[in-house]
């Protein structure tokens, strides 16, 4: 491959890969939706504790909705169609990508962080649902806009094949997302309301105890038993991983709670509803509480002090988070009734 192609795409830096990719692709099509707005409209905020799914050997905890959902929801609610194609054959997947780029269409790719060479080594874990945008090629490489990087980066064809066809927990299977262009008129207010409604539903009404506000409570209660159940060493490793998932992997801080607070602020202006401003402030307080949980956990990890008392304390912070989030989403659902 020696041809070069470049689309007139502008890189935008963001906190989170999926909402960031979606936002910058939407901008490309003239829909000016910030990352936080996309996160809210796509109902990105979530909590789930899946002790039976292991990621890098630790139980999976997520603070956001399932990979791919956010993009589909956000773009769909703004009236922008998203076409997703999967590939079995890597060569065909790359041909399809080349074809798009030659036609001047930037596309979003699901990739595995581990195989992307431009990340600092400390980042390279097997997380297979990282969303990046390919918008050009040059020589034997592709020009990539990775939302969590400062500027555009390049990636060789071989590396991109590995990243797109990795075989981890959320195996991307070469998924490629293409936005189909924006409609003439966009009803942002309606999209915001839809996003809020779904967020309230998943945080309050899911009939399973491991997700939503109930999930936080369930996690708080399970956490208390970790030292007994897993022993000192494993408990500290698991706890460390919870913090990494909450604060490290592009969340904007506080397990996406700050990003959601930013969304509520924007939503207040769009819906002309001052109650949302108040809710945004409450969400910020919740985010700070999550940060407190992270700081306390890290202290426990540092002192290797997995005594039961310490874990009771952590559990109390979490129960408080659960209580506050429950109240917040209940009041939030009142505003969009």
């Amino acid at each position: 491959m020696t041809d070069t192609a470049k689309t007139d795409f502008t890189h935008r830096i963001s906190a989170h890969c999926e909402s960031g990719s979606t936002s910058s692709l939407l901008f490309h099509y003239g829909v000016k939706a910030s990352e936080a707005l996309v996160f809210g409209i796509g109902s990105g905020v979530f909590f789930g504790y899946f002790p039976f799914i292991k990621m890098s050997g630790s139980p999976l905890i997520t603070y956001r909705t399932f990979p791919g959902r956010l993009m589909k929801n956000a773009a769909g609610r703004l009236g922008v169609g998203v076409k997703c194609v999967k590939f079995k054959n890597p060569e065909k997947g790359m041909e399809a990508l080349d074809d798009m780029l030659r036609r001047g269409i930037p596309v979003c790719l699901q990739t595995a962080v581990y195989w992307l060479p431009y990340f600092p080594p400390a980042f390279r874990i097997h997380f297979d649902a990282h969303f990046i945008i390919a918008y050009g090629m040059s020589g034997n490489g592709y020009i990539i806009s990775d939302p969590v990087m400062d500027g555009p980066v390049t990636c060789t064809r071989e590396d991109l094949i590995r990243a797109r066809f990795s075989k981890g927990t959320f195996s991307p299977k070469g998924k490629m997302f293409r936005f189909m262009g924006a409609p003439g008129h966009i009803d942002i207010a309606a999209a915001v309301v839809k996003g809020i409604k779904e967020a309230c539903f998943v945080m309050l009404k899911l009939p399973v105890p491991i997700m939503g506000a109930r999930g936080i409570r369930f996690f708080a209660n399970s956490l208390k038993n970790w030292p007994e159940k897993h022993g000192n060493r494993k408990t500290l490793l698991y706890l460390g991983n919870v913090i990494r998932l909450q604060e490290e992997f592009g969340t904007g801080g506080g397990g996406f709670r700050f990003m959601y607070a930013a969304f509520l602020q924007e939503a207040a202006a769009i819906l002309k509803d001052d109650r949302l401003l108040d809710l945004s402030k409450r969400m910020t307080v919740i985010g700070d509480r999550w940060r407190e949980f992270a700081a306390s956990s890290a202290r426990i990890c540092k002192d290797r002090a997995s005594e039961k008392d310490n874990f009771n304390l952590l559990s109390e912070i979490l129960l408080d988070c659960a209580e506050k989030e429950h109240g917040l989403f209940r009041d939030l659902s009142e505003t969009v009734r």
Partner: peptide
């Protein structure tokens, strides 16, 4: 990138070079 509130109460995007608690658990991992 962190989302944070500025003096006027507006949310802004602010660059961060890391947070010590995260550094601790990261080193541990």
């Amino acid at each position: 990138i962190n989302y944070a509130v500025d003096e006027s109460g507006q949310y802004v995007l602010e660059k961060t070079s890391g947070w010590e608690p995260v550094n601790i658990v990261d080193r541990q991992a």
